[in-house]
Amino acid sequence: MTFTLAFTAQSEDIDELGHVNNAVWVRWIQDVATAHWVAVADPAHVDAYIWVVTRHEIDYLRALGPGESATAHTWIPDPPKGARFDRMVEFVGEDGKPHVRARTTWAIIDKATGKPLRVPKEVAEPFLA
């Protein structure tokens, strides 16, 4: 199941080279992942668990300038492995061309204990449909 969210580059997102700064792309990756979690997960799961990034692998393909927009598409390609889940993200510009592609790895944390746990089947299922 693919989830989408649109982003528009604001003046504060732009670096000295005149395009969206790499750190902003990382923030947007986190923002779309979090929005996907909140939109799809059972509210009881949102209350019980939190996700933390353990790895980002990002390909910066083309610049995005001030005022330009890109739509993030994110999905979970494979079932979780233990406490970890890989997430794919692709940002596509208004012209249909990709700007950034990323694979990020997230680990689930039990809010009550502060410790990682195996991703429960019922947590993963809605994202794999």
Results as ranks from 00 to 15, higher is better:
A6E: 15
A6K: 14
A6L: 09
T8M: 04
A9F: 02
S11N: 05
E12W: 12
D13V: 02
I14E: 07
I14Q: 09
I14N: 04
D15C: 02
D15T: 01
D15E: 09
G18A: 04
G18S: 04
H19I: 07
H19G: 06
N21F: 02
N21I: 06
N22A: 11
A23R: 09
A23G: 13
W25K: 02
V26N: 01
V26I: 15
R27I: 00
R27E: 14
R27F: 01
W28Y: 06
W28Q: 06
W28S: 05
W28I: 08
W28H: 04
D31N: 13
D31C: 01
D31A: 14
D31H: 10
V32P: 14
T34D: 13
T34F: 14
T34H: 15
A35I: 07
W37K: 02
W37P: 04
A39L: 08
V40M: 12
A41C: 08
D42M: 10
P43N: 14
A44T: 12
A44D: 12
A44I: 08
H45Q: 13
H45N: 10
V46Y: 13
A48P: 01
A48H: 05
Y49V: 08
I50N: 08
W51R: 05
W51L: 11
V52S: 07
V52A: 15
V53H: 00
T54W: 00
R55C: 07
H56I: 07
E57N: 09
E57W: 04
P66S: 03
G67Y: 05
E68A: 13
E68T: 02
T71P: 00
T71I: 13
T71N: 01
T71F: 01
A72T: 11
H73P: 01
H73C: 04
H73R: 13
T74P: 11
I76R: 02
I76S: 03
P77I: 08
D78S: 14
D78G: 04
D78W: 01
P79M: 07
P79K: 02
P79A: 06
P79W: 06
P79N: 06
K81W: 02
G82S: 10
G82R: 05
R84E: 11
F85W: 11
D86C: 00
D86K: 11
D86R: 07
V89M: 12
E90H: 00
E90T: 14
G93I: 05
